[in-house]
Write a protein that binds this DNA or RNA. Structure first.
Lengths: 341, 341
DNA sequence: CTGAAAGCGCTAACAG
DNA sequence: CTGTTAGCGCTTTCAG
C-alpha cells in the first residue's frame, strides 16, 4: 500500500483524475454530487496531495529561502521565527540556511535554493555574494545590510537609534562615551549616529573595533582590556546587546557602580535579551514590523514577478529601502536624565 | 530565455538527455570526451538541475522538517542552527516550522511536511500530536520530550543534571532551596532530580509551578511574588536559564547579595545565555552532541527506511532514548563549596 | 558507451 | 459538468 495518489482517488470515486484535481483546487464547475464522491474517496484512502508534483507542474514551489548567519543568535532567531510564521500564514514554507557569515557557504546555499526553485529569498547574511551572484531568478529581500545590489532592504533606523542612544547618554552628563562596534566603516549607520551625537555635543568620538570574524571570547577580551586601560571612560554605547552585556559584566566584576559610575546602552533589544537582562538600556528594533514588511515586500514581488530590482538612482537611498522606527529603552544602566539645562 | 533545462544541455552538447543525466549523476560508463562536451554545455548555458523534478522522479526530496516551538528561544535556535548545519553537510535541506507549542499549528505543519514529501522529521514541540498522528510516513527523531510515541528521543540527562545542580547548592550549606519549573509532573526528570537530591539531604522539596502557557511577564510576576513572600528562601534551582535570570534579577533589585545571601542555578546553558549572563550558574546541555546524534539517527533511519519506531517494551526506556551527559557550570551565583564535611 | 521511450504525480488545454 | 491527452524536468529501464 504505497502512498495513495490522485489517480487512486479517481478510481475509488469513479471519476477521472481531472475531476479530482478540479475538486482539489475548486476550479471549474463541479456537481455537488461528484464533489462529495471525491471527498469521500479522499478520506477513505487517506489521500494527501503531493506538493512536489504540484510544484513541478505549476512552476511554483511556495518555498522561500531564508539565509541568516545563524539562528542561534537571538537577533536572527527572532526574525526567523516571525518571518517564518507570517510566510506560513500565507501558505509558504521556509528553507532555513545558516551561512555563518561564510561567503562560500552562502554561495552554496544560494545555489541550492535556486536549484530547489524557491519562489523567493530573504537574506540577512553579511557577505556580498549577492552582488557577485550572476542574477538570482527569484525575488530577494535583504535585511539590515548595506544595500549592495539594489535589492530592497528592510532595516531599523540605525542612524537615529544610535543618535538617540548617544544623546540619552550625553544628557545624563557623562562626557567620555566610547562606542564598541564590530566593523568600523563610513557606511556604518550606527557609528554615524554615534559620531554625529558626539560631535554635536562637542565631544570626541571614540570608537573601538572588535572585529567581525573574531570569537565571543576575543570580543570580551578586547572590551575588558580596553576598559581596564582606560579608567576614565564613563559610558559605553555598544552596537549590539552582546557587546553591551560584556561591558556591563566588566563593570560588575570591577565593582563599578552602574549607572552611577558607568553607563551602558546596547542595540537590538530582542525579547530574549530583554528578558534575560531587563536592566540593560538598549535601542529596541521593531521586529514584528520588520518581519511584516519583509514578507509583504517579498510576496508582492513574487506576485508581481519581474520587478526584482529597483531601478532607481543608486546614488541615493533606494525607494525600496525601509528604515523602520526604533524605540529607546533606558532600563537601569543609564542614569536618570539630569535636568542640567 | 527561460531557465535552461536538461534537454537544452543535451541539445547544445549534441547528445541525448539520458547522457546528460548520466554525467550529472556519474552513472554508467561515459567517454571522457562526451563528459567534457556536456560539462561545457552546462557551463555555456548556465544550467542548474531542477531539484523538484529530480525529487519527483527519485521519490526522495532530501527535505527534513524541523518543528520547534520557536527559534526565537535561544535553546531551540541553538539546536536548529546546529542540526541544520549538519544536515546541510549531508546534502539535506531543512524546512523550518515554529509551532509555538500550539497543537493545531503543529498538526498543520506536520501535514504540510508530509505533503511536501519530507524524507525525515525532527521535532522538539511539546504537544502530543505525534501520538495522535495516524502514522507519519517519514522517520522522526524527537528532542527532549517525554517519549510518548515510541519514537527515538534525544535529550540531555535531565535527572542527573538537576540532581547535581541541587547537590551543588546543598553542598554550599544552604537549606531552603526552591525549584521553579513550568509544569509539575511526576514525569518531569529535572523535578525528579531536584526532589531526589533534596530528600537525600533530608530537606523538604519545594516546587513552584510557573505555568507552561503563560507569558514571560507572568512568570516573572509569579517568581517575584513568591520570593517576596518567602524571604527565607536561600537558593533557587530553575528548570531553565530564563527563570534563573528572573530570580537573579529579583535578587539584584531587592539588594540581596548573590551568592552570599541568595544562590541561583539554572538549566540549559546556551551559548547566548552564557555570553549574556556569564555569572549565572547552570547545567549546560551538550548541544553539539545532541545535534550530532539527532542527525545521525535520522539519516540512519532514512537510509534503513522502515524501522521508524522502536518495537521495544514500552514500559522501560526505549533503546532509542539517548541521555546525553550535561556539564555543571557554577559561575558566580553559587557559593564556593563549604568544606563543612 | 549511448539513445528512445516511459513515467514520477499532478494540472491545463481542449473536446464533448 | 466531465474526460482525454499532453507535459512540467528529470531518471531509468531496455535496446542497440
Amino acid at each position: 500500500m504505497a502512498k495513495p495518489k490522485l489517480a487512486d482517488v479517481a478510481r475509488v470515486a469513479g471519476v477521472s483524475p481531472t475531476t479530482v484535481s478540479r475538486v482539489l483546487n475548486s476550479r471549474g464547475y463541479l456537481s455537488q454530487e461528484t464533489r462529495e464522491k471525491v471527498y469521500e474517496a479522499m478520506r477513505e484512502i487517506n489521500y494527501r496531495p503531493n506538493a512536489i508534483a504540484r510544484s513541478l507542474q505549476e512552476q511554483k514551489t511556495h518555498l522561500i529561502g531564508l539565509v541568516f548567519p545563524t539562528v542561534s543568535n537571538p537577533f536572527y532567531g527572532e526574525l526567523a521565527y516571525r518571518i517564518e510564521s507570517k510566510l506560513a500564514d500565507a501558505g509558504y514554507k521556509v528553507i532555513l540556511c545558516n551561512s555563518e557569515d561564510h561567503p562560500e557557504l552562502e554561495a552554496r546555499y544560494l545555489d541550492m535554493l535556486m536549484g530547489n526553485q524557491v519562489d523567493g529569498l530573504v537574506t540577512g547574511a553579511h557577505s556580498d555574494v549577492l552582488a557577485l551572484a550572476p542574477h538570482l531568478e527569484a525575488p530577494l529581500v535583504t535585511i539590515d545590510r548595506i544595500n549592495g545590489g539594489g535589492y530592497p532592504n528592510i532595516r531599523c533606523d540605525n542612524f537615529t537609534g544610535a543618535l538617540q542612544a548617544t544623546e540619552s547618554l550625553i544628557a545624563t552628563g557623562v562626557r567620555r562615551i566610547v562606542h564598541f562596534t564590530s566593523t568600523v566603516s563610513e557606511q556604518n549607520l550606527r557609528q554615524q549616529g554615534y559620531s554625529k551625537a558626539m560631535s554635536a555635543a562637542g565631544l570626541e568620538p571614540e570608537i573601538v573595533e572588535l572585529g567581525f570574524r573574531s570569537s565571543d571570547g576575543e570580543h570580551r577580551q578586547t572590551i575588558n582590556n580596553f576598559l581596564d586601560s582606560e579608567p576614565t571612560v564613563e559610558a559605553v554605547f555598544a552596537s549590539n546587546d552582546g557587546y553591551a552585556a560584556m561591558a556591563l559584566q566588566w563593570a560588575y566584576v570591577r565593582g563599578k557602580k552602574v549607572p552611577e559610575d558607568f553607563s551602558v546602552i546596547g542595540f537590538d533589544g530582542t525579547p530574549a535579551v530583554r528578558s534575560l537582562l531587563p536592566q540593560l538600556a538598549t535601542v529596541v528594533q521593531p521586529f514584528e514590523l520588520m518581519a511584516e514588511r519583509t514578507v509583504q515586500l517579498l510576496l508582492a514581488a513574487i506576485d508581481g514577478a519581474g520587478s526584482k530590482r529597483t531601478d532607481s538612482d543608486p546614488s541615493e537611498d533606494s525607494p525600496a529601502d525601509h528604515n523602520l522606527p526604533v524605540e529607546l529603552y533606558l532600563g537601569q544602566t543609564v542614569k536618570a536624565q539630569s535636568n542640567a539645562e
